[in-house]
């Protein structure tokens, strides 16, 4: 069983030219911050290496950090410019029994993260949901389209903090 500090050391030894950080400042979970464009290589290594053996992805979730600047436009609607969107991966090893959390961040304007679908097949639907709710594009995903909202939903990505509801959808009034 390894704790997050040891896992960080192993990752740093394997990928010397990538940046990693360990964030243990906030309560309960410590997580490793990694690079969004290299997460595929890192995931492959985490799943195959004999000391780590992370063979199950428990959860993949998108988060809107809402750390940009809030701008009010002429109708009084608030939008957020700048800032980041993050994706959190919770990994677990069924054979050894240790856990780790990994976080990647990407810019809000054109969010792109590498897909980990070829490592853990369960990421297929989780990434589709993160795309549907936040608009994060996963590169090299086999079938990236909306999964929960209707396929012709034009009004944006619902779980972002500055999302506005449309008035009508196909002739039906959406608001109360």
């Amino acid at each position: 069983m390894k704790n997050p500090q040891e896992i960080l050391e192993i990752l740093k030894a394997q990928f010397p030219n990538l940046e990693f950080q360990l964030d243990a400042s906030l309560p309960v979970e410590t997580f490793i911050i990694a690079d969004a464009m290299a997460i595929n290589k890192i995931s492959n290594f985490l799943a195959e290496n004999e000391e780590l053996l992370f063979d199950s992805l428990m959860n993949l979730s998108g988060v809107d950090d809402a750390n940009g600047t809030k701008v009010k436009d002429e109708e009084g609607n608030e939008t957020i410019n700048g800032g980041t969107l993050s994706v959190y991966y919770h990994l677990y090893s069924t054979k050894i029994g240790h856990k780790i959390t990994v976080r990647v961040s990407t810019a809000r304007e054109n969010p792109e993260v590498e897909s980990v679908e070829n490592v853990w097949k369960t990421a297929n639907w989780h990434e589709r949901e993160a795309f549907d709710m936040f608009g994060i594009k996963f590169l090299n995903h086999s079938d990236l389209r909306r999964i929960l909202m209707p396929y012709d939903w034009e009004a944006g990505y619902p779980l972002r903090k500055d999302y506005k509801n449309p008035e009508f959808y196909q002739g039906m009034k959406v608001t109360y």
Binding site: M149, P158, M172, V174, Y176
Partner: peptide, 19 residues
Amino acid sequence: CGGPYWEHGYHVLKGVDRI
């Protein structure tokens, strides 16, 4: 009438008598 999801439900039709 939409039930408990009346306030923030962006995907809920507020009452089937709208259709």
